[in-house]
Write a protein that binds this DNA or RNA. Structure first.
Ligand SMILES: [Mn+2]
Ligand SMILES: [Mn+2]
Ligand SMILES: [Mn+2]
Ligand SMILES: [Mn+2]
Lengths: 218, 218
DNA sequence: ATTTATTTTTAGACAAGACTAAAAATTTAT
DNA sequence: ATAAATTTTTAGTCTTGTCTAAAAATAAAT
């Protein structure tokens, strides 16, 4: 049995290990969990005890296969519930996270399975993030940051790196959604700002925006 | 803020206070919560501290209005989720309780409200129990036990008193569901057994059954 | 009206998860 | 290579919710 707190830590470790796939530090975990390093150490010991992470004092942690499966199962539920909230209960994409954070811990194989079917086996959540399959495979996506796209190219918005309500509301305000076509009109090297064209409307964005929006080349 | 455990205790007290609307004893609470009397006492003190119950040592407890509202809100969510599971995710009525027991604690006004709308504002859960409205009014129902119905009368099944999986599966097996028409063919005074006619098929039931099935006169 | 049985409360302990303060290990800088 | 700074772990405490064992109050029986 994995407790609610343990699930949240496993999820944090999974996400931290994604890019820099070295071992995850105690401090990084504490920061992500909004807690103190000493609390993180305590929890790491419990997870290690239960065989969910590999741990050596002072050396950081790695998820074991068992831990990875547990984390991915929680992420699967989180993203399915997000789809449910948006598709069926008319939530906006900036309103779903907090609720999904609770729903992801509901324990019922049948519930998850039936929810998946009810939603017609979605492959992406409302923020463009992939939904793992029931056996724990996380689909890999070839998404690239808008900041990396060359001048004058066309691309399509397929996801967000930052899914905070503030950023999502900014995108809403400027009519950027998943599937929106974006043209890079110009790039300013001084401050990394960019001028885009969206539905024939020009838009100047800062580097904070271009570094948090995933696109694919059209 | 009311914790998950506190919510479960409040719900237990609410249900215990229903029929015998005197004060609820510590032992009764402990038994319903599958815990020890000493644990119940501890929790009662916390609830009293928070103004959710009225409590005098050795005299039992009553929900305050604040406590009643909290309990009814949890019951509302429990029953809405049960409807969701049966109507949308094709759960059987004997499979929903355990999952609803978890879902009832999810905290989001918007979620409950949107779920209610999505389900088309149901007034009864899959077991025939009434769903309280958003402001905490529990609809009263004029249901009567099958055991009280006179010989040769017709009635319709509208609910269950015992909603355990075992009883619900017994009803499934004998084709008794909400809305099923039942005719009392005869009553045996010796053991309180009854002979029914359901869809032209005769069925002999024990007093255990007739005392756990709610009907209304046709 | 006492004695006996039952119910309820207290006292003390434990596990989970978090915190603060201090010690130990590791990393960075000189 | 040492010293300084940072990270990580330990030690000890707290809160929530549970438990057992014992004491106190209430209810039942003689
Ligand atoms: Mn969570
Ligand atoms: Mn998401
Ligand atoms: Mn519950
Ligand atoms: Mn029910």
């Amino acid at each position: 049995m994995v407790t609610l707190s343990e699930e949240n830590y496993l999820k944090a470790i999974y996400h931290l290990a994604l890019r820099n796939d070295e071992k995850v530090s105690t401090n990084a975990i504490a920061q992500k969990m909004q807690t103190k390093a000493s609390s993180a150490t305590d929890m790491i010991k419990k997870l290690s005890e239960k065989g969910l992470v590999d741990y050596q004092k002072y050396k950081g942690v790695n998820l074991t296969e068992k831990g990875r499966l547990s984390a991915v199962s929680v992420i699967r539920k989180h993203r399915l519930w997000e789809v449910f909230l948006v598709d069926k209960l008319s939530f906006n994409w900036d309103e779903v996270h907090e609720v999904a954070e609770q729903l992801e811990h509901i324990k019922s194989e049948k519930l998850t399975q039936q929810l998946d079917a009810f939603l017609n086996y979605p492959t992406k959540d409302p923020h463009g993030d992939p939904i793992p399959d029931p056996s724990g495979n996380m689909p890999s996506t070839e998404k690239v940051l808008l900041a990396k796209i060359e001048n004058h190219k066309h691309c399509i918005c397929i996801g967000v790196k930052d899914s905070s309500a503030e950023f999502l509301q900014y995108l809403d305000k400027h009519n950027i959604a998943l599937g929106t076509e974006i043209t890079i009109v110009s790039k300013e090297s001084f401050d990394e700002s960019m001028t885009l064209k969206i539905n024939k409307t020009p838009l100047v964005i800062s580097k904070e925006v271009s570094h948090n929006l995933f696109v694919k080349i059209n």
